[in-house]
Simulated assay, not measured.
Amino acid sequence: MNAEAPDASVETPADPGRIVLLTASHRVAPGLLSWPAWQTLHAADRVLCADPDQPQLPYLREAGVHVEHATPSADELVADCAGGRTVVVLTGGEGNAPLTDGLARLGGSGRTRMPDLELLPGSYDLPGARLLDLVQVMDRIRRSCPWTSQKTHRGLAKYAIEEAYELVEAIEDGDRTELREELGDVLLQVVFHARIAEEDPEEPFAIDDVAGGLVEKLIHRHPHVFGDETAETPEDVHAHWLRTKAIEKQRTSVTEGVPLGQPGLALAAKLASRVRTAELDVPLPTGDSIGYDLLALAVAAEANGTDPEAALRAAARAYRDAILAVEGA
């Protein structure tokens, strides 16, 4: 039995086409798009962009991609794709919420045959990309905020100490949410001071100089990672660090570089560590005050591998808990 011929009077639905939302991160240099993005751009029937200042546009024109400045509605975009056409909409990394919301409403209505919808990232943020946002935000705040614009290094110094203590507390509490927040607050101090430093009339520097100096230091002090030396144990690494640091600093005393403004127990332990590392025989000073007794305890703790400042803080926290228990009884 012969198969029936198809009814010519029945129309085959037209191909609804394809909409490609092409995103590109503003944190990546313009023009550095992925290969799938370039392929899609060259093959598209239309490429649309609502922002005439989109940083990708000069590079697309140079590559022979014609981009139209247009802001179509969801209905207009769907209609433009009819017949199997591909329309690319170029957006920033944040996307185009009004357009995607409109397309979602159309698709959800069930009354419109929707084209295929594809989200194509043209470039991806690298790890650390949000640091660029932080620098930009800090720059704007410094220029526009009445409080921030007047701050100096000296005026901010106390905040750096406060934030460092709050970070230590978050670490000791084991609170991951607080830890992340306090790390951000410490980072703010770094970025804030670096932004202020840009304005110094005699010796300006910027956050890139700070980061660049740190990178060089880390590479230089890790020759077992970036060079030809070897280190099998943490003790080997520590020895490398001390050796390279001594060459860099060319200090005439082991006390150089020890901040005297740090807490007393920490200061005593740091001095003791320097003396022990340098293998110096320095008798402890004696006196009648409790300070000398605390000094001896701090030196003994450091020699045994205990951080006296952290140990006393832990004991003080236990004392705080005991106080709260009595108050709550």
Rank of each mutant, 00 (worst) to 15 (best):
G84Y: 11
R46D: 10
L284Y: 00
L294Q: 10
V67R: 04
D173N: 10
E68A: 05
D209C: 02
H220Y: 14
A97R: 08
A329D: 12
S34F: 02
A104V: 04
V191L: 07
A268T: 03
Q189H: 10
A206H: 10
L132Q: 15
K245D: 08
W241M: 15
A298P: 05
G95R: 01
G83E: 13
E302C: 03
G184F: 07
D200K: 09
G110L: 04
E235P: 02
H69N: 08
A197G: 02
K249F: 11
L324V: 09
G184E: 06
P223Y: 11
H42L: 15
V326A: 11
A246G: 11
H240Q: 06
P16R: 05
G128D: 06
I219P: 01
D208G: 06
T177D: 15
P115N: 11
Y319D: 14
G17A: 09
D209N: 08
T112R: 14
H238I: 13
R180K: 14
G155N: 02
L242M: 12
A239V: 14
D321L: 12
G212P: 01
P201Q: 06
G93Y: 03
V88R: 01
M1W: 06
A300N: 07
A79W: 13
A197N: 07
P55E: 06
A329W: 10
G227L: 08
R142Y: 03
D307P: 01
L187I: 06
L103Y: 05
Y59L: 15
L312K: 05
Q56S: 13
A14N: 05
L187H: 04
A8D: 13
A325N: 08
A79V: 11
S144T: 14
V28W: 02
G108M: 02
G213K: 05
T148M: 09
G291Y: 13
P127I: 12
P204Q: 06
H220S: 12
L32E: 11
R154M: 13
A8T: 10
Q262G: 02
W35P: 08
A74C: 03
A82R: 15
L119V: 10
P146R: 11
K158D: 10
T148V: 14
D173M: 10
A43G: 06
L103Q: 03
M114Q: 01
P234M: 08
D80K: 15
R274A: 06
L312T: 05
L218I: 13
A194D: 00
A160D: 08
V326N: 08
G108S: 05
L21D: 01
E235W: 03
H240E: 07
E248Q: 13
R243D: 07
D75V: 11
A310D: 01
A24G: 07
S253C: 02
V299Y: 00
K217I: 09
E203K: 14
L57W: 01
V191N: 00
G93M: 03
A14C: 08
R276F: 04
E166W: 10
G291M: 08
D7W: 09
V20H: 00
D51Q: 07
